[in-house]
Amino acid sequence: MGALGKPIILMVAMYAFLKFGLPNIPGSAPLPSSLIFLYLLLTAGGIFMFKTLSGESKDAFWDPIRRFLTGENIGGLQALRYGVFILFPLLVGWQTYGSTAVSDLPPTESRTIHPAPPGEYTGLSNPVPKTPENIMQGKGFYAAYCSPCHGGNFDGKGPAARGFIPAPANFADPTTIAMLQESYLFWRIKKGGVGLPIEGAPWKSAMPRWEVELPDEWIWKIILGEYDGAHQSPRTWE
């Protein structure tokens, strides 16, 4: 089998990587299908070159393909052969249609959820001591200012959350504040959605710019209350 098996596995793996793997790498976006098609074509071309250039594998690779295409001694595969002949032009047509048709979909938006903070907001440590009173005060402020969106249970499901896209962050989720330093939270809470850089899609975030309403000290207390209430701890390494 070997001669064709590996190339096919490679193609499927490549497709899976382009479609599902690549979009998950930070800073990248889902690829348009036309680009995926192009990359697959290039991969196929590469495999083809490799296989036809190395002498001894050449025949093992080519022979089954040639026999299949010409229908020589392939017995029960004859029907499949015709199927391929019908499918191939249709596929070419479909691909062409896809690449010329005007998309019915709104522009794809990829939002970087945790963009880099401005320099002055890296490495700040919380000046407010982590005492029970401070945590309690922070939770009080949280209940007053943050819970309408982020929820009384810190789960992002506040009574006002339903209309906001992106949804208010769920602090109990390990991919939000548990991944972040207190310094980062301080930046996000002070500057809100309008403080985000372009890759954070600032026009969409309803996160308020709290610096216009809350003193810094309150914000640091809220951070204490937020971690405590969501049962998370800040990321500490630099």
Binding site: L4, V12, R67, N73, L77
Partner: peptide
């Protein structure tokens, strides 16, 4: 033509998976 048969089965399986993923 055993090898060709097996190969085509693989092609078919791979193709089906790819098409399913596209859908």
């Amino acid at each position: 033509m055993k090898p060709a048969n097996r190969i085509m089965k693989q092609v078919l399986r791979g193709g089906t998976a790819a098409i399913a993923a596209m859908i």
